[in-house]
Design a protein around this nucleic acid. Sequence first.
DNA 1: AATACGGGGCG
DNA 2: CGCCCAGTATT
Length: 382
Amino acid sequence: MPRQPSPSASLIEMPSAAWKRSLARRLLAWFRRHRRDLPWRQSRDPYRIWISEIMLQQTQVATVVPYFNRFLEAFPTIEALAAADEHEVLRLWEGLGYYRRARGMHEAARQMVARFDGHFPTTLAEIGSLPGIGRYTAGAIASIAYDAQAPILEANTVRLLSRLVAFDGDPASGPGQKQLWALAEEILPRRGCGDFNQALMELGSLVCTPKAPDCLACCLAPLCAARAQGRQQEIPRRATRVAIEAVREASVVVWHGGKVFLRKRAAGERWAGLWDFPRFPLEAESAPAARRELSQKVREQTGLAIAGTRHFATLKHGVTRFRITLDCYAATSRGAKSRLAGGQSQWIEPAGLERLALSVTGRKLSRMLDDPAARSPWRASV
DNA sequence: AATACGGGGCG
DNA sequence: CGCCCAGTATT
C-alpha cells in the first residue's frame, strides 16, 4: 500500500508516483460502477458539457436536470443560443438563480459565432476567455469534452483532496487554493482526465460528503490521510459564515384597466434583465406611514401615481446574505404614463406574465393575482 | 481578501 | 432553521 503523502500539514506535499497510480486505478474502477446517468453525460458534445457546467455552478445536480433538458430542447446548438433574445434565455433560466450565468452564456454563444466561426473553442485558454468561464469551468469542459489534461477544483474536490492529504490550512484562502490546485494538477493521469475529474466530483458528492463521509464505502479510504488520523469530520476547515441580515421590502401590484405594471430590471441591479413589480426597501412601521412611503417610492421608481393601496400577502425569502420579508401590496394607478424608457416597462394582463422572466418571488406574486385580495379596492379608472 | 449574486435540497 | 451546493466577476 503506497504511503500517504503527508502526515498532517498546512503545506501539501506532492504525492509519489505509486500513490497517484493507486488513486487513479481505485477511483476509475469505482466510477465505472457508480457513475450516475446524467443527461449531459450522454455525449461529449462540448456545447452540452458547457451548458451543464454553467448550470451546475453553485447549484446541485438534482436542481439542474430539468432545466438542462428544457434548455437543450429550446437551444440545441451554439447558433440557436446566439440567435435567441436574452429575455428568452432568462425565461428558461427562471428559478435557477444567479442570472448572470444566463446572460454570460448568451454572450459567450455570440462570441463563439463571432470569434470561433460558431464552433466551441478547443484550447483551455480560449475556453477560459469566454464570459462566465473561470478556471474550474474551463478545466471541466476541456477535460470532459476533449480529454485535456486540465485540473479542476470545486466544492466536492476541495473537500475530497483536503481529506486525502489531511490538509490543515484554510482551503478558501489564497495559499490554500494555490496548493489544492497544484495537487489537483499533480494527480491527473496521463489519459482519461475527463472521467478522472468527474469521478473525483462524483465520489465527493456521493461518498466523501460534508457532514458524515461514508469512509467504509470509500474506494480511497486506504489512501486517505484524514481517515488514517480519524479527522475526516474536521477536515476541511469550515468557512466562517457571513452574518445574515434581515431586510424588509415591498412589492406593489399597480393596476390600471385590468393590467398590471412591470418594469425590466436594469443592468447592474439585482435580477438584471428580469421583469419585476415595483419593488424597494420599506422602512415604515405603521400602516399609514407605509402607505405614504409606497406612494412616494412607486412614483420615484416608475413615475406612476397610485391610490387605494392595500396589503395582501407577505413572502419570505433569502437572497445571498439577506433574509428578506417582502410585503405585497395592490394599488391602482390614476394614469398609465410611466417615466421609464421604452421597452423598460409595460402594462400587461396577468395571463401575459407567463411569457415574462420573473424572479421566484415575482412569480409567486404573479400567481396570486387571481385572488380578489390582490386587486386594488379602487376601481381602475378606465 | 471580501463581497455580490438566488434559490433549493436536505437533515 | 442552518448548512451546503460541479463558481465567477468585481471591488
